[in-house]
């Protein structure tokens, strides 16, 4: 285990003068531009990656602000109108005693988005350095972020379903609020941000330390 930190010089594709396809895994000579197997574009490292990650991440963060300030749902029952923000909706579910569902909504619309902002920013900042969390840890973090981000869309779908279903004229009607749109945008932007991240960057720092 003592050698675990400094592995016996791992041969990376880049050092071997090769480039791997991120879509299908086929390996090509360094000069290849498109993959012969699947037709994807090839690049040993995606050089513009971090810039795009930051741009989409900021767009996502900005869209997340109105998503929390404006109402997500506008409910009217017997003429009374009530507006609910994301957090307001969670609190209401909690009051009703639906703990489990309150938790799902809270995790999907608050914890995951904010956790994602932090995780992506951390990966982007630390990409080129060998920091506290070693390569494997950060690779896992990246995979988790990519997998979990889409689940934030739950709340948007909930609003859509409620608005479609609860249209009982006078008794009760539900309309979606502006927050639904900005929340959906926020989730989409952060997903794009995560997809633009080139995880190979995480490993480059180690390549430098064992040569």
């Amino acid at each position: 285990m003592e050698n675990a930190r400094r592995t016996q010089s791992v041969l990376t594709a880049r050092r071997a003068g090769l480039v791997g396809c991120t879509t299908c895994g086929r390996v090509h000579a360094r000069q290849a531009v498109t993959c012969r197997r699947c037709g994807s574009r090839l690049a040993s490292r995606d050089t513009g990656s971090l810039q795009r990650v930051w741009a989409w991440l900021f767009a996502g963060m900005i869209a997340y602000i109105p998503a929390n300030l404006y109402p997500m749902l506008v409910t009217s029952t017997f003429g009374k109108t009530q507006q609910n923000t994301i957090v307001g909706g969670v609190i209401e579910l909690f009051d009703h005693g639906s703990w489990g569902v309150a938790l799902i909504v809270f995790v999907a619309s608050v914890l995951i988005p904010i956790g994602k902002f932090i995780a992506i920013a951390y990966l982007a900042v630390s990409a080129r350095s060998a920091v506290v969390i070693r390569g494997h840890g950060r690779q896992h973090l990246y995979e988790v972020v990519e997998f979990i981000g889409r689940w934030s869309m739950i709340d948007v779908f909930v609003v859509a379903i409620l608005a479609a279903l609860v249209q009982l004229d006078f008794v009760a009607t539900v309309h979606p609020g502006i927050a639904a749109a900005s929340f959906a945008l926020s989730v989409a932007f952060t997903m794009i941000s995560a997809q633009n991240f080139d995880p190979r960057l995480l490993w480059d720092a180690y390549e430098a330390d064992d040569t």
Partner: peptide, 23 residues
């Protein structure tokens, strides 16, 4: 990553709980 049918189903479940009190 953009095909979200399974997320929609969970959304339906949440929506159902939200309106059980109402209808």
């Amino acid at each position: 990553p953009w095909a979200m049918a399974e997320i929609f189903i969970v959304g339906v479940a949440v929506a159902l709980v939200k309106i059980t009190g109402l209808a």
